[in-house]
Design a binder for these strands. Sequence first.
RNA 1: GGUGCCAUAGCUCAGUAGGUAGAGCAACGGACUGAAAAUCCGUGUGUCCCUGGUUCGAUUCCAGGUGGUACCA
Length: 303
Amino acid sequence: MKNKKHPTLIVIVGPTAVGKTSVSIQLAKKLNAEIISADSRQFYKEIPIGTAAPTKEEMEGVKHHFVGNLSVSDYYNVSKFEYEVIGLLEDYFKTNDLMIMVGGSGLYIDAVCNGIDKLPDIDESLRKQLNELYEKEGLNILQNKLRDLDPEYYEQVDLNNPKRILRALEVCLQTGKTYSSLRVGNIAKRPFNIIKIGLELNREQLNDRINRRIYNMLEEKWLDEVKSVYHLKDENALNTVGYKELFKYVSGEWDYETAIEKIKVNTRRFAKRQMTWFKRYDDIKWFSPKELNNIVEYLDNRL
RNA sequence: GGUGCCAUAGCUCAGUAGGUAGAGCAACGGACUGAAAAUCCGUGUGUCCCUGGUUCGAUUCCAGGUGGUACCA
């Protein structure tokens, strides 16, 4: 490796099960870097097996951040992640040149790379109130409310998507301003370089890896882990591929085979959504997870 | 071996009173600014088992074949 002059964040993305963890750890060792996980489910300490979080052994010798740092009952969001990561990097780059950020949560990665609009926190009671309104009155009421409060956003938003509408409404009601006026979408200028690397496999190979990984997770007593958090199953953090299906098995709603089959299907779909997100990055270089040497060479030329 | 039933999308199956076909699931494509492994939107991808016959026209009717299935031997 040449001498690195500019602090650089190496971002490694890719669909679930493609092999990001292994590549990131090998790179971290070669480059003497630490790792930030940008995986919105590996934050939670109660669910390492089903989220394929890096194990203690894997993390041996490579410092990891944002793995198992939260409880599933903690409230967390992208903005906090951005704030914490940027804070960490500011410190880290005083004495180091390279950090690796690896993960599959596109929104979280974008927040770190590009920043996210500064919006106030929403009162818990307001969010709850809106959720109840939606439960009781349905989507139509929310749509009408949004048309009154923020006609501009009403024109752009996917009106069938309750989450988008609820979000816009809570911001409008909390701030007294329109959501559209607060959504400026400025791209943040970061005081470090960013190099994006994508890992991909063809569909057949990825599906095969997905199936094998599900099998391995079950071998590692995933079901015990699921049962241990069953009482928390309504937490958002557990609205997660694998857990929601196995909860239905545990409750007796589905038989085992059905649950496993659904996990496979939903994991494939998740991987597809991730690829859709990452494919729009125009500053990314794609590799197979097997070509570590090519990745190192590519980085070497750019650092 | 005999008789009945079945053969249509990747799977389970509808359907066409003869004018080349459609549901569910799967699959595929897309969106995405504080719940994102979330949430939402879009798309039929087909030798209608094979061969021949009748017909202007057969996936549909007829005959034979092949495969499956049930019952009888």
